[in-house]
Protein backbone atom coordinates (compact mmCIF):
# COMPACT_ATOMS: atom_id res chain seq x y z
CA UNK A 1 0.00 0.00 0.00
CA UNK A 2 1.47 3.22 -1.09
CA UNK A 3 0.42 6.52 -2.46
CA UNK A 4 2.18 7.63 -5.61
CA UNK A 5 3.19 11.08 -6.70
CA UNK A 6 4.24 11.81 -10.24
CA UNK A 7 5.78 15.25 -10.65
CA UNK A 8 6.29 16.55 -14.16
CA UNK A 9 7.48 13.18 -15.41
CA UNK A 10 9.09 13.23 -18.84
CA UNK A 11 10.51 10.48 -20.98
CA UNK A 12 12.39 10.74 -24.26
CA UNK A 13 13.68 8.00 -26.53
CA UNK A 14 16.48 9.71 -28.38
CA UNK A 15 15.04 12.91 -29.78
CA UNK A 16 11.43 11.81 -29.42
CA UNK A 17 9.61 12.86 -26.29
CA UNK A 18 6.97 10.27 -25.46
CA UNK A 19 5.84 11.49 -22.05
CA UNK A 20 5.70 15.25 -22.00
CA UNK A 21 5.29 16.22 -18.38
CA UNK A 22 2.81 14.14 -16.41
CA UNK A 23 1.81 15.14 -12.89
CA UNK A 24 -0.54 12.90 -11.01
CA UNK A 25 -1.33 11.67 -7.54
CA UNK A 26 -2.57 8.18 -6.89
CA UNK A 27 -4.05 7.46 -3.48
CA UNK A 28 -3.08 4.51 -1.40
CA UNK A 29 -5.32 1.55 -2.20
CA UNK A 30 -6.74 3.21 -5.27
CA UNK A 31 -7.44 1.41 -8.55
CA UNK A 32 -6.19 3.80 -11.21
CA UNK A 33 -6.65 3.09 -14.90
CA UNK A 34 -4.50 4.69 -17.60
CA UNK A 35 -6.49 4.74 -20.79
CA UNK A 36 -5.98 6.24 -24.21
CA UNK A 37 -5.54 5.37 -27.85
CA UNK A 38 -2.43 3.46 -28.93
CA UNK A 39 0.66 5.61 -28.92
CA UNK A 40 -0.60 7.93 -26.20
CA UNK A 41 2.18 6.87 -23.84
CA UNK A 42 0.12 4.93 -21.31
CA UNK A 43 2.29 1.83 -21.42
CA UNK A 44 5.46 3.88 -21.24
CA UNK A 45 4.10 5.72 -18.22
CA UNK A 46 3.38 2.38 -16.53
CA UNK A 47 6.89 1.14 -17.32
CA UNK A 48 8.31 4.33 -15.82
CA UNK A 49 6.35 3.68 -12.64
CA UNK A 50 7.53 0.07 -12.69
CA UNK A 51 11.17 1.03 -13.17
CA UNK A 52 11.54 -0.86 -16.44
CA UNK A 53 12.48 2.41 -18.13
CA UNK A 54 14.52 5.29 -16.75
CA UNK A 55 12.70 8.55 -16.12
CA UNK A 56 14.27 11.31 -18.21
CA UNK A 57 13.20 14.11 -15.88
CA UNK A 58 10.73 14.69 -13.11
CA UNK A 59 10.15 12.98 -9.80
CA UNK A 60 8.38 9.76 -8.92
CA UNK A 61 7.57 9.28 -5.23
CA UNK A 62 6.19 6.29 -3.41
CA UNK A 63 4.93 7.38 0.03
CA UNK A 64 6.92 10.57 -0.24
CA UNK A 65 10.19 8.78 -1.04
CA UNK A 66 11.79 9.47 -4.39
CA UNK A 67 12.17 6.15 -6.21
CA UNK A 68 13.53 7.30 -9.61
CA UNK A 69 16.79 5.40 -9.12
CA UNK A 70 15.37 2.27 -7.51
CA UNK A 71 15.05 -1.05 -9.30
CA UNK A 72 11.56 -2.48 -9.78
CA UNK A 73 11.94 -4.93 -6.92
CA UNK A 74 13.24 -2.24 -4.56
CA UNK A 75 10.19 -0.16 -5.40
CA UNK A 76 8.05 -3.05 -4.26
CA UNK A 77 5.97 -3.35 -7.40
CA UNK A 78 4.59 -6.39 -9.12
CA UNK A 79 3.44 -6.48 -12.70
CA UNK A 80 1.12 -8.54 -14.84
CA UNK A 81 2.10 -8.55 -18.50
CA UNK A 82 0.02 -8.72 -21.63
CA UNK A 83 1.64 -11.97 -22.78
CA UNK A 84 1.63 -13.44 -19.22
CA UNK A 85 5.45 -13.73 -19.38
CA UNK A 86 5.57 -16.89 -17.28
CA UNK A 87 8.91 -18.69 -17.06
CA UNK A 88 8.32 -21.61 -19.42
CA UNK A 89 10.73 -23.97 -17.70
CA UNK A 90 9.33 -23.52 -14.19
CA UNK A 91 6.20 -25.03 -12.70
CA UNK A 92 3.37 -22.78 -11.63
CA UNK A 93 4.63 -23.05 -8.05
CA UNK A 94 8.18 -22.12 -9.05
CA UNK A 95 6.91 -19.26 -11.17
CA UNK A 96 5.01 -17.83 -8.24
CA UNK A 97 7.80 -18.42 -5.73
CA UNK A 98 10.68 -17.15 -7.90
CA UNK A 99 10.54 -13.54 -6.70
CA UNK A 100 10.52 -14.54 -3.06
CA UNK A 101 13.37 -17.01 -3.42
CA UNK A 102 15.50 -14.19 -4.79
CA UNK A 103 14.76 -12.00 -1.77
CA UNK A 104 16.79 -12.98 1.23
CA UNK A 105 15.21 -13.92 4.51
CA UNK A 106 12.17 -15.94 3.51
CA UNK A 107 11.99 -19.45 4.88
CA UNK A 108 10.75 -22.21 2.58
CA UNK A 109 7.70 -22.57 4.76
CA UNK A 110 6.87 -18.87 4.50
CA UNK A 111 7.21 -18.98 0.73
CA UNK A 112 4.99 -22.03 0.53
CA UNK A 113 2.30 -20.36 2.62
CA UNK A 114 2.34 -17.20 0.54
CA UNK A 115 2.20 -19.11 -2.75
CA UNK A 116 -0.64 -21.29 -1.54
CA UNK A 117 -2.60 -18.34 -0.22
CA UNK A 118 -2.32 -16.59 -3.57
CA UNK A 119 -3.19 -19.80 -5.39
CA UNK A 120 -6.30 -20.19 -3.27
CA UNK A 121 -7.41 -16.66 -4.02
CA UNK A 122 -7.29 -17.43 -7.73
CA UNK A 123 -8.37 -21.06 -7.51
CA UNK A 124 -5.25 -22.35 -9.21
CA UNK A 125 -4.03 -24.57 -6.40
CA UNK A 126 -4.54 -27.73 -8.41
CA UNK A 127 -2.23 -26.41 -11.16
CA UNK A 128 0.74 -25.66 -8.93
CA UNK A 129 2.71 -28.65 -10.20
CA UNK A 130 2.11 -27.97 -13.88
CA UNK A 131 4.19 -26.17 -16.46
CA UNK A 132 2.76 -23.06 -18.15
CA UNK A 133 2.46 -24.84 -21.49
CA UNK A 134 -0.02 -27.26 -19.90
CA UNK A 135 -2.41 -24.41 -19.06
CA UNK A 136 -4.98 -22.50 -21.09
CA UNK A 137 -4.63 -18.78 -21.77
CA UNK A 138 -7.02 -17.81 -18.98
CA UNK A 139 -5.25 -20.08 -16.50
CA UNK A 140 -1.90 -18.66 -17.48
CA UNK A 141 -3.08 -15.14 -16.87
CA UNK A 142 -4.37 -16.21 -13.46
CA UNK A 143 -0.94 -17.65 -12.67
CA UNK A 144 0.65 -14.37 -13.76
CA UNK A 145 -1.68 -12.51 -11.39
CA UNK A 146 -0.93 -15.07 -8.68
CA UNK A 147 2.79 -14.52 -9.15
CA UNK A 148 2.24 -10.82 -8.60
CA UNK A 149 0.09 -11.40 -5.50
CA UNK A 150 2.71 -13.68 -3.95
CA UNK A 151 5.21 -10.87 -4.00
CA UNK A 152 2.85 -8.85 -1.76
CA UNK A 153 3.60 -5.64 -3.62
CA UNK A 154 3.02 -2.04 -2.55
CA UNK A 155 1.87 -1.26 -6.05
CA UNK A 156 0.26 -3.71 -8.42
CA UNK A 157 0.67 -2.96 -12.12
CA UNK A 158 -1.31 -4.40 -15.02
CA UNK A 159 -0.22 -3.89 -18.63
CA UNK A 160 -3.24 -4.68 -20.80
CA UNK A 161 -3.65 -8.05 -19.13
CA UNK A 162 -6.83 -9.02 -20.95
CA UNK A 163 -5.96 -8.26 -24.54
CA UNK A 164 -4.65 -11.76 -25.33
CA UNK A 165 -7.82 -13.45 -24.08
CA UNK A 166 -10.94 -14.19 -26.06
CA UNK A 167 -14.11 -12.19 -25.43
CA UNK A 168 -15.75 -14.53 -22.91
CA UNK A 169 -12.59 -15.02 -20.85
CA UNK A 170 -11.96 -11.32 -20.95
CA UNK A 171 -15.21 -10.61 -19.10
CA UNK A 172 -14.60 -13.41 -16.59
CA UNK A 173 -11.05 -12.28 -15.85
CA UNK A 174 -12.18 -8.68 -15.62
CA UNK A 175 -14.58 -9.64 -12.88
CA UNK A 176 -11.79 -11.64 -11.25
CA UNK A 177 -9.58 -8.57 -11.17
CA UNK A 178 -12.39 -6.44 -9.76
CA UNK A 179 -12.88 -8.98 -6.96
CA UNK A 180 -9.13 -9.07 -6.39
CA UNK A 181 -9.12 -5.34 -5.87
CA UNK A 182 -11.89 -5.64 -3.33
CA UNK A 183 -10.03 -8.28 -1.37
CA UNK A 184 -6.72 -6.40 -1.57
CA UNK A 185 -8.19 -2.99 -0.90
CA UNK A 186 -4.97 -1.78 0.68
CA UNK A 187 -2.91 -2.34 -2.43
CA UNK A 188 -2.56 0.44 -4.94
CA UNK A 189 -3.27 -0.79 -8.46
CA UNK A 190 -2.49 0.78 -11.80
CA UNK A 191 -4.03 -0.73 -14.87
CA UNK A 192 -3.30 0.15 -18.48
CA UNK A 193 -5.81 -0.47 -21.22
CA UNK A 194 -7.03 0.96 -24.49
CA UNK A 195 -10.48 -0.42 -23.84
CA UNK A 196 -12.78 2.12 -22.23
CA UNK A 197 -15.16 -0.60 -21.04
CA UNK A 198 -12.40 -2.09 -18.89
CA UNK A 199 -11.58 1.38 -17.67
CA UNK A 200 -15.18 2.21 -16.74
CA UNK A 201 -15.86 -1.09 -15.01
CA UNK A 202 -12.64 -1.47 -13.02
CA UNK A 203 -11.42 1.98 -12.12
CA UNK A 204 -11.77 4.02 -8.98
CA UNK A 205 -10.34 6.80 -11.07
CA UNK A 206 -9.40 6.98 -14.72
CA UNK A 207 -6.51 8.93 -16.20
CA UNK A 208 -7.08 9.66 -19.87
CA UNK A 209 -3.81 10.16 -21.75
CA UNK A 210 -3.29 11.70 -25.12
CA UNK A 211 0.02 12.35 -26.89
CA UNK A 212 2.03 11.97 -23.70
CA UNK A 213 -0.08 14.36 -21.66
CA UNK A 214 -2.86 13.87 -19.14
CA UNK A 215 -6.15 14.87 -20.71
CA UNK A 216 -8.35 14.36 -17.66
CA UNK A 217 -8.35 12.50 -14.37
CA UNK A 218 -11.51 11.57 -12.55
CA UNK A 219 -13.93 8.88 -11.50
CA UNK A 220 -15.62 7.02 -14.34
CA UNK A 221 -18.86 8.90 -13.83
CA UNK A 222 -17.09 12.27 -13.73
CA UNK A 223 -15.51 11.51 -17.05
CA UNK A 224 -18.80 10.32 -18.45
CA UNK A 225 -20.84 13.20 -17.20
CA UNK A 226 -18.40 16.09 -17.26
CA UNK A 227 -15.70 15.43 -19.84
CA UNK A 228 -13.05 18.15 -19.91
CA UNK A 229 -12.63 17.97 -23.66
CA UNK A 230 -14.16 16.67 -26.83
CA UNK A 231 -11.40 14.04 -26.83
CA UNK A 232 -12.45 12.60 -23.46
CA UNK A 233 -16.11 12.93 -24.36
CA UNK A 234 -15.52 10.94 -27.51
CA UNK A 235 -13.27 8.37 -25.90
CA UNK A 236 -15.40 7.48 -22.87
CA UNK A 237 -18.77 5.87 -23.45
CA UNK A 238 -20.09 3.42 -25.97
CA UNK A 239 -21.38 4.03 -28.55
CA UNK A 240 -19.20 7.05 -29.13
CA UNK A 241 -20.69 10.46 -28.37
CA UNK A 242 -22.29 12.21 -31.35
CA UNK A 243 -20.73 15.56 -32.28
CA UNK A 244 -22.81 18.06 -34.17
CA UNK A 245 -21.33 21.34 -35.27
CA UNK A 246 -21.89 24.37 -37.43
CA UNK A 247 -25.41 25.43 -38.30
CA UNK A 248 -26.92 22.34 -36.75
CA UNK A 249 -25.49 23.38 -33.37
CA UNK A 250 -26.64 26.99 -33.53
CA UNK A 251 -29.70 26.30 -31.38
CA UNK A 252 -27.39 25.58 -28.46
CA UNK A 253 -25.21 28.64 -28.84
CA UNK A 254 -21.97 26.73 -29.30
CA UNK A 255 -19.71 25.85 -32.22
CA UNK A 256 -20.06 22.14 -31.40
CA UNK A 257 -22.36 20.13 -29.26
CA UNK A 258 -22.06 16.55 -28.17
CA UNK A 259 -24.90 14.24 -27.21
CA UNK A 260 -24.62 10.59 -26.33
CA UNK A 261 -26.79 8.14 -28.23
CA UNK A 262 -28.49 7.06 -25.01
CA UNK A 263 -29.53 10.68 -24.41
CA UNK A 264 -31.31 11.08 -27.72
CA UNK A 265 -34.86 10.13 -28.56
CA UNK A 266 -36.62 9.63 -31.86
CA UNK A 267 -39.72 11.73 -32.17
CA UNK A 268 -42.39 11.78 -34.83
CA UNK A 269 -42.30 15.59 -34.81
CA UNK A 270 -40.92 18.63 -32.94
CA UNK A 271 -37.39 17.25 -32.88
CA UNK A 272 -34.28 19.41 -32.88
CA UNK A 273 -32.77 17.69 -35.86
CA UNK A 274 -34.34 15.73 -38.67
CA UNK A 275 -32.98 13.27 -41.12
CA UNK A 276 -33.38 9.85 -42.65
CA UNK A 277 -32.55 6.51 -41.09
CA UNK A 278 -29.52 4.93 -42.78
CA UNK A 279 -29.37 1.74 -40.86
CA UNK A 280 -30.53 0.20 -37.63
CA UNK A 281 -28.86 -2.46 -35.52
CA UNK A 282 -30.80 -4.58 -33.12
CA UNK A 283 -28.79 -6.07 -30.28
CA UNK A 284 -31.75 -7.48 -28.43
CA UNK A 285 -31.51 -5.37 -25.29
CA UNK A 286 -30.79 -2.20 -27.22
CA UNK A 287 -31.09 -1.04 -30.72
CA UNK A 288 -28.97 1.59 -32.42
CA UNK A 289 -30.40 3.76 -35.11
CA UNK A 290 -28.08 5.60 -37.46
CA UNK A 291 -29.61 8.82 -38.70
CA UNK A 292 -28.18 11.12 -41.35
CA UNK A 293 -28.93 14.68 -40.29
CA UNK A 294 -26.26 16.31 -42.43
CA UNK A 295 -23.17 15.65 -40.23
CA UNK A 296 -20.10 13.87 -41.54
CA UNK A 297 -20.85 10.77 -39.55
CA UNK A 298 -24.40 9.60 -38.92
CA UNK A 299 -25.87 10.30 -35.51
CA UNK A 300 -26.42 7.24 -33.36
CA UNK A 301 -29.55 6.99 -31.25
CA UNK A 302 -29.98 4.26 -28.66
CA UNK A 303 -33.49 2.94 -28.25
CA UNK A 304 -34.86 -0.01 -26.38
CA UNK A 305 -34.46 -3.36 -28.08
CA UNK A 306 -37.06 -4.46 -30.52
CA UNK A 307 -37.91 -1.07 -31.91
CA UNK A 308 -37.76 -1.11 -35.66
CA UNK A 309 -37.04 1.58 -38.20
CA UNK A 310 -36.90 1.15 -41.93
CA UNK A 311 -33.94 2.48 -43.82
CA UNK A 312 -34.91 5.72 -45.52
CA UNK A 313 -37.54 6.52 -42.93
CA UNK A 314 -37.71 10.23 -42.10
CA UNK A 315 -37.37 10.85 -38.38
CA UNK A 316 -36.84 13.70 -36.01
CA UNK A 317 -34.48 13.41 -33.04
CA UNK A 318 -33.93 15.46 -29.90
CA UNK A 319 -31.96 15.29 -26.65
CA UNK A 320 -33.88 13.97 -23.70
CA UNK A 321 -32.87 16.92 -21.60
CA UNK A 322 -30.98 20.11 -22.39
CA UNK A 323 -28.67 19.35 -19.45
CA UNK A 324 -27.43 16.27 -21.25
CA UNK A 325 -26.08 18.31 -24.14
CA UNK A 326 -22.38 19.01 -23.91
CA UNK A 327 -21.28 22.27 -25.49
CA UNK A 328 -17.73 22.73 -26.79
CA UNK A 329 -15.81 25.73 -28.06
CA UNK A 330 -13.63 25.74 -31.15
CA UNK A 331 -10.66 24.45 -29.15
CA UNK A 332 -12.65 21.43 -28.05
CA UNK A 333 -13.00 22.69 -24.47
CA UNK A 334 -16.38 22.52 -22.72
CA UNK A 335 -18.53 25.62 -22.32
CA UNK A 336 -20.19 25.38 -18.94
Amino acid sequence: MANLQLKDIRKSFGAVEVIKGVSLEIESGEFMVFVGPSGCGKSTLLRLVAGLEDITSGELKFDGQVVNALTPSKRGIAMVFQSYALYPHMTVYENMAFGMTLEKGHSKEEIRQRVERAADMLQIREYLGRLPKQLSGGQRQRVAIGRAITRDPRVFLFDEPLSNLDAALRVATRIEIAKLHESMHNTTMIYVTHDQVEAMTLADRICVLRDGLVEQVGTPMELYERPDSMFVAGFIGSPKMNFISGKLAENFNAPTVGVRGEHLVVKPSDGVWSGSVIHSENLGSDSYIYVDIGTDEPVVVREDGGKKHQSGEQVQIAPMDAALVHRFDNAGKPIR
Binding site: S73, F81, S83, A85, L86, Y87, R147
Partner: peptide
Protein backbone atom coordinates in the same frame (compact mmCIF):
# COMPACT_ATOMS: atom_id res chain seq x y z
CA UNK B 1 13.77 -14.73 -26.44
CA UNK B 2 10.70 -12.74 -25.40
CA UNK B 3 11.42 -9.40 -23.74
CA UNK B 4 8.54 -9.71 -21.32
CA UNK B 5 9.99 -12.82 -19.66
CA UNK B 6 13.10 -10.87 -18.89
CA UNK B 7 11.06 -7.94 -17.60
CA UNK B 8 9.04 -10.26 -15.40
CA UNK B 9 12.33 -11.47 -13.95
CA UNK B 10 13.49 -7.90 -13.40
CA UNK B 11 10.26 -7.16 -11.57
CA UNK B 12 10.84 -10.29 -9.53
CA UNK B 13 14.12 -8.75 -8.45
CA UNK B 14 16.48 -10.79 -10.60
Amino acid sequence: LPVEIEEAAIVDGA
